[in-house]
């Protein structure tokens, strides 16, 4: 039987919450899996108090070494699971778009932290980076 690394949806209506699980491919979505590797909370959290220009964030908990093991023995991640696993470098990302965007954002925030006082100049630098 095919092993899959996939998400199991828990949580309430309009408040999704996912377990990242290793399960047989043909079992039901929320049935008891072989192992719970971690969780993924897709609800964006407000920036932490104290960082003024902070960005909203999403919480992922993952047993990285265990996920690496399961991938090594042939577990097949679903597309979403692939996206999450590629963030920690377990897999090559399927699409490069996210990576490029990440680089842009990193450069953006670096520029912001460099030029703090002058709001007008900050925007111009970000535009240059985006272009």
């Amino acid at each position: 039987m095919v092993l899959r690394i996939r998400l199991a949806r828990f949580g309430k209506k309009h408040a999704p919450f996912y377990n990242i699980v290793v399960a047989h491919a043909r079992t039901a979505r929320n049935s008891r899996p072989l192992e719970v590797l971690g969780t993924y909370d897709p609800k964006p959290q407000a920036p932490r108090p104290g960082d003024t220009h902070g960005r909203p964030w999403k919480d992922i908990k993952l047993d990285i070494s265990r996920a690496r093991y399961w991938v090594g023995v042939g577990a097949q991640p679903s597309d979403t699971a692939w996206r999450l696993l590629s963030m920690v470098g377990i897999l090559e990302p399927q699409f490069r778009v996210g990576q490029v965007q990440g680089q842009v954002i990193r450069a953006d925030s670096a520029a912001k932290s460099l030029v703090k006082e002058d709001g007008g100049r900050t925007t111009t630098t970000t535009e240059e980076v985006n272009a």
């Binding site: 971690g38 960005r55 999403k58 993952l62 047993d63 265990r66 999450l84 963030m87 920690v88 996210g98």
Partner: peptide, 15 residues
């Protein structure tokens, strides 16, 4: 991990 709209914060846990 910064992405377009959100940062993804990955924490290592143990099974």
């Amino acid at each position: 991990v910064p992405r377009r709209r959100w940062d993804f914060v990955v924490r290592d846990v143990s099974v």
